[in-house]
Simulated assay, not measured.
Amino acid sequence: MTTTPANPQPNLALRILRSPPARVLLLGFILVLFMTLNTDVMTSYAGEPVKAVRHIIALAIAGFAVYVGYGYFIEKRTLTELALPGMGRQFGVGLLIGAGLYAACEMILMALGIYRIVGLNPWSYMVPAIAMALSSSVYEELLFRGVLFGAVEQWFGSWAALVVSSLVFGLTHLINPQGTIEGALFIAVEAGTLLAAAYMLTRRLWVSIGFHMAWNYTQSAIFSGVVSGNDAQQGLIRSTVNGPNWLTGGNFGLESSVLALLLCTSTGIVMLLMAVKRGKIVPPIWKRQDRPVNQ
């Protein structure tokens, strides 16, 4: 009489698909394809912002579905990073941090006389940025924090995952129309650190998504700023900006300014210290003793 193991080992193909490299290559590739579709939608419906928003929402839902499906059917795990309990509170916190930090940067520039408000546009000018903010926040967080950070952390631990995900996240902004090495490195340090720290602290993606969405939307829809080297779009506020690039960020946008670097990086460091204090740092696999990655 033969007995079947209670927990049979998956076959070789499934073990490969569940490995961190396969997660990055396969799931990451699918999400990049969706990001391309997002770009096509925003280009095709540039003059119809409401239609663009509807299509982007549909694509965002599809992106979540693919991410969840891969985790559930391939990796056979509980996706704690997208757990619904506490989602509203964490997403709201992210929105407040993102909008608050960007507004704080602009307030400092106003106090210095660099950023001057000269008028207001109609409220309808705030609609087009919704699609951009939704697309960038959902897909970039699923890709860079959910896929890349999670995969690197699984083998090499939290600190290596923070460095790798932040650097790749920053360098991808070089493909933007006004992308610069300086701007990419600033984003890697300030945004990469803060977004990874938010994930490490909460072990959820909701704060990161909320921050990313609010920062981009506030920057474009309210203050009419350049978003990470993309082409400028008019938002609610008509303004003039006259000051040194190290304060304004120049053509790349405020992300390439010392103000954003100091405020966002400081916030990220505070979150990292909280994550360390709460024991949320995952060591490399060779120092781990059956410790789950997602907590």
Rank of each mutant, 00 (worst) to 15 (best):
Y45K: 07
M42W: 00
Q9I: 02
A161H: 05
Q154L: 00
M132F: 14
A99K: 00
A188G: 09
Y67H: 02
L174M: 15
N7Q: 15
G92F: 09
L26G: 05
G94E: 09
L109S: 08
L143F: 14
G179V: 14
G279H: 03
E48S: 15
W159A: 04
G210K: 12
G98E: 09
M87Q: 02
G249K: 02
T80N: 08
R204V: 07
V189D: 03
L84R: 11
I130E: 01
R291G: 09
F144V: 08
L254M: 04
Y125A: 13
L174S: 14
T36L: 14
L82Q: 01
L263G: 08
T3M: 09
F186T: 01
F64W: 10
L273Q: 09
P85Y: 00
M87I: 06
Y199S: 03
T39C: 05
V50G: 00
G229N: 12
Y115K: 11
A62K: 07
R288W: 06
E48A: 15
T36S: 14
I285M: 14
G94P: 06
R291L: 15
F169P: 01
W206F: 10
F29K: 00
T78E: 13
P284T: 04
F73T: 12
A188Q: 04
F223S: 04
E255I: 07
G47T: 15
M200W: 12
T172S: 13
A46K: 12
L194W: 06
L31D: 01
I108D: 03
T267G: 15
N121C: 03
R15I: 00
L95F: 11
F211D: 09
G71D: 08
T39M: 13
T36P: 08
G71N: 00
M213G: 08
G250I: 00
L236P: 04
A131G: 00
F156C: 06
G86A: 06
G229V: 10
T218R: 06
Y125E: 13
N7H: 15
M35E: 13
V270Q: 03
F252M: 06
T2I: 12
G92I: 02
R291Q: 15
I269T: 01
L272F: 12
Q295R: 14
Q233E: 13
N230L: 15
L12I: 13
I269A: 09
P292Q: 07
A52P: 05
L201K: 03
K277N: 00
L84V: 15
V258E: 06
V66N: 00
D290K: 14
I181P: 10
A83E: 00
G92C: 11
N230S: 15
A104V: 04
T2Y: 02
G235D: 01
S136K: 11
F29I: 10
G157M: 05
T193M: 13
I114M: 08
M87A: 14
V93M: 13
F252H: 03
S158H: 02
G210N: 11
F211I: 12
D231R: 14
K280R: 15
E153Q: 12
V168N: 10
L247F: 05
L205Y: 03
L171H: 01
G179W: 11
L167C: 10
M132Q: 13
G225V: 05
V68M: 03
L205H: 05
V226E: 11
V227P: 01
N294H: 11
K280F: 07
A191R: 02
N251R: 14
A83Y: 02
L262E: 04
M274A: 07
A260T: 09
P283Y: 05
A161S: 03
G170Q: 06
L194E: 07
I16V: 14
